[in-house]
Design a protein around this nucleic acid. Structure first.
Lengths: 219, 219
DNA sequence: ACCTGAATGCGAACAGTGTACGCATAGAGC
DNA sequence: GCTCTATGCGTACACTGTTCGCATTCAGGT
């Protein structure tokens, strides 16, 4: 028997005039464009459809759900995670790759909200995960230790990003700033002692924190 | 001139028969009950209203926004964060408090999704933060180091919780499990080497990871 | 050249969401 | 008893995700 799907290039159906055909990739790209322009909250099926100059119902021919659309966008972003990075030792590569991943995700923090909504793994993130795990193994860690260490690093990165970069544009003045300004130094002396500096430059503090955590595992 | 607000116990207005009056606290409590029963996605103004046996419009007399309702719930949960914990050294107390906070938040992971949406600080979380920062200072860290260390610990905790505990109930079978089962060992050997164990008992791995991170700062 | 079948686009409709408007009500102070 | 004000709440509007059914267009068979 021959192959069951000789030519999947079927493509009949309603005319789209000059406009390019719809497809999962095109829809995901449009969704990503939309989010980067107006934010994740504005990612409605109708808005994505408008971005492609079509109607919402048309999207459902290529995407089963809104959830599926979000997954497609997640994969799109995950494909950009760094894998090959400079560094001669495994530890150096780990440090560089994790910092690079942090900086990359910092430009797309909103996908983290897609990621953490469901029990989901981006297939396009596997090369990144594999490289990190491999470096931990090469550094001499046992498999279980490597998994723990990679998990900790990843959690540190996404925790920092999610905590520091708000998803919704804050209403002015920020609730955070109001609360912080009202802190009574006699009730919370430690916070007051620290308050003045945590607004200023964290600088590349994230990189050094990652370095410290790596050191804790690769001792 | 006398005080402008002599008796804030006004309370006129529409009758609520035998039902207790509406208030921010009552609304927040009802919202929290609702989330713990049916999940954060079901927390609509109408559902909260129904929980209080009233109409959605009534809530807006006490709560300006849905956002404000979420903040009230956040404060409610934050009030339960651990502050006093056993331990004779600052390091021991830090370890115990962070682990206790992790375990507490693990029972209310959904509030983290409220927390990370906006640039927000829960006032009721200040005692917890202050205690942690104070212990870092007592352990000999400089203020900037203490802030960095506490931030790292907190990010590690919420990163782990957000990454491991999905907000939405997964559809069966899990997308994660599908992807993980399809991993080609020749393409991703490190993941394959680790895959078999990361499903099994992490046990209290979180506590040891926190301990490692603490050690990295309190060396 | 005709028909058939399937894949695609899309207008209309439905239930559910957050929120604003306006009216009815009940108590406090004169 | 009047007025004033805070409260409850019915109604309505714009918006959401999703489904149904119809129209269109092509590929393959005869």
């Amino acid at each position: 028997m021959s192959t069951v799907t000789p030519l999947p290039r079927t493509q009949h159906g309603g005319a789209r005039d000059g406009r390019p055909e719809l497809s999962v990739a095109a829809i995901a790209a449009a969704g990503r464009r939309l989010v980067e322009r107006v934010g994740l909250d504005a990612l409605s099926m109708r808005n994505v459809a408008a971005e492609l100059d079509t109607a919402a119902a048309s999207l459902y021919r290529h995407v089963v759900d809104r959830e599926a659309l979000l997954l497609a966008i997640l994969e799109d972003i995950a494909a950009g995670l760094p894998v090959e990075v400079p560094g001669r030792t495994a530890c150096e590569r780990l440090q560089n790759r994790l910092v690079a991943a942090h900086d990359y995700m910092a430009r797309h923090v909103w996908v983290l909200h897609i990621l953490i909504r469901g029990e989901v793994v981006a297939e396009n993130a596997l090369p990144f995960s594999n490289a990190c795990l491999q470096d931990f193994l090469d550094a001499g860690l046992a498999p279980r230790e490597a998994a723990t260490a990679f998990g900790a690093c990843w959690h540190l990165v996404i925790g920092e990003l999610l905590d520091e970069h708000p998803l919704a544009p804050p209403r002015e003045p920020t609730q955070r700033s109001i609360v912080m300004s009202r802190i009574a130094p006699e009730r919370f002396p430690a916070i007051a002692a620290v308050r003045s500096l945590d607004l200023h430059d964290r600088g590349d503090g994230t990189a050094t924190v990652i370095g410290r955590l790596l050191g804790a595992f690769l001792s």
